[in-house]
Amino acid sequence: MPTLTIYDAVGAALTEEMRRDHNVIAFGEGIATKRHELVDEFGALRIRNTPLAEGIIAGTAVGAAAMGLRPVVDLLFAPFLCYAMDELVNSAGKLRYLSGGQFTFPLVTLAMTGAGWGVGAQHNHNVEAWFVHSPGLKVVMPSTPADTKALLKTAIRDDNPVLFFLDIGLLYQPGEVPAGEHLLPLGQAAIVREGRDVTLVSYGKTVHHCQQAAEQLASHGIAAEVIDLRSLKPLDEATILGSVKKTGRLVVVHEANRLCGVGAEIAALVAEHAFADLKAPIVRLGGPDAPAAASYPLEQASVPSAEAIADAARRLCST
């Protein structure tokens, strides 16, 4: 299998989908500059740079989707989505419902998120839970190049708007990607490591921290099961519940602010549907309720580490 980074996987998915469907277009902040190979193949009408005006970019994409195109827009950093909330939440997320299903809105919005580059609070803010909470939107945040390519291809073909978050810390990490046509359905989590004693649920870069924690736990005789959500909405409830009913213990991990985060929803899900199977309280590990630091060491300190995850799991398994 070829080896790609997540950045390259995005380019490969765009290339394949633009070849497959002439209605797929891509525009946004610097996308034609960063991906000149797409301009060379598809021309300036189908891939183009835009002004730094996120609301206009998203609004244009909503209109294009309503008229039958399949736009992919790059808004660079996740906090910039603040400028496009009305277009994405009030228009893209609601107009299919408001039209009684007469219109579709096949729109993908790319945004980089998370710690890794020390870009400061106005460029580093994990906002995925905002959009999970918004009706009509789907939300994806993969952790590997293979999943990135497969899920982006699926998102482009979806008739609903999809927020596609790329973890900055993983953007240039290489990984094997299947050659040829390969898609994954939205809403299907991956069990990346099987175990019997405790379930670790995560997405984005903290999936890899969970895998490292599982290695540490194995040396103590604790078998941790690691679940990569991949898709936050739709959420693979069956895989989460099946794992917790097997292990009886749950640690939910994400880099985003712990308060009202995706982990809170997963904790509520398990408390409602698998409470009788729990052998210990649910633990949530997340970032602090504070803006991200521009200092690289401080930025990294806000992300749950493999050691912190392993410590939490050990405490659960000792009860």
Rank of each mutant, 00 (worst) to 15 (best):
I222E: 11
D228A: 14
A155P: 07
Y7T: 09
L76Y: 07
M67F: 09
S143R: 08
H123M: 03
V140F: 00
A13R: 00
R284S: 04
E265W: 03
D277H: 15
F275E: 11
T104E: 15
K233R: 15
L4Q: 03
E17I: 00
G55E: 04
G101N: 10
T247C: 07
G287M: 06
L107H: 00
R230V: 11
G118W: 03
V140E: 01
A293L: 08
A9H: 04
I282K: 11
L95T: 10
R96I: 09
Y7M: 08
L14E: 07
T109E: 01
E176R: 11
A293E: 10
A13D: 01
T5P: 10
S219V: 12
A224L: 00
F105I: 14
A179D: 15
N257L: 06
T206K: 09
D228C: 11
A290I: 12
L76Q: 14
N126Q: 15
A115Q: 10
L45D: 15
N124Y: 12
V251E: 00
D167C: 12
C82I: 14
Y203I: 05
V73R: 05
R230H: 11
A267C: 08
A32L: 02
V62W: 06
S231D: 12
D147T: 03
G59T: 08
R315C: 04
T60R: 01
R230S: 12
R193A: 11
L76D: 03
D197A: 09
L69K: 07
G93Y: 10
T199C: 07
P304K: 02
I309K: 02
A238Q: 14
K205L: 14
A92T: 14
E54Y: 10
A150E: 10
L285E: 06
Y172A: 11
Y97A: 05
G30M: 08
L107A: 04
R196K: 13
C317Q: 03
A214S: 03
L69E: 01
L229T: 09
A224R: 01
E299R: 04
R157D: 11
L152T: 01
L107T: 04
Q122E: 10
E176T: 12
A312I: 04
Y296T: 10
V198D: 02
G93W: 06
R46I: 08
M67K: 09
V73W: 03
T60A: 15
V270L: 02
E17Q: 15
E87N: 09
V127Y: 09
H182N: 13
A12P: 01
E265M: 06
N49M: 07
E272W: 07
G187H: 05
H208D: 00
S134V: 05
L76P: 00
L171A: 15
L76T: 14
L183C: 05
S295D: 01
A268K: 08
L166V: 13
H125F: 13
D40K: 13
H209T: 06
V162T: 14
V201Q: 01
A129Q: 15
A308M: 13
N160A: 14
R315F: 05
L250A: 06
Y97G: 00
V72P: 02
I47H: 05
L98N: 07
R249S: 00
E181D: 12
A129R: 09
A268G: 12
P281T: 07
H133M: 08
D167L: 03
L151K: 06
L298K: 03
S219K: 15
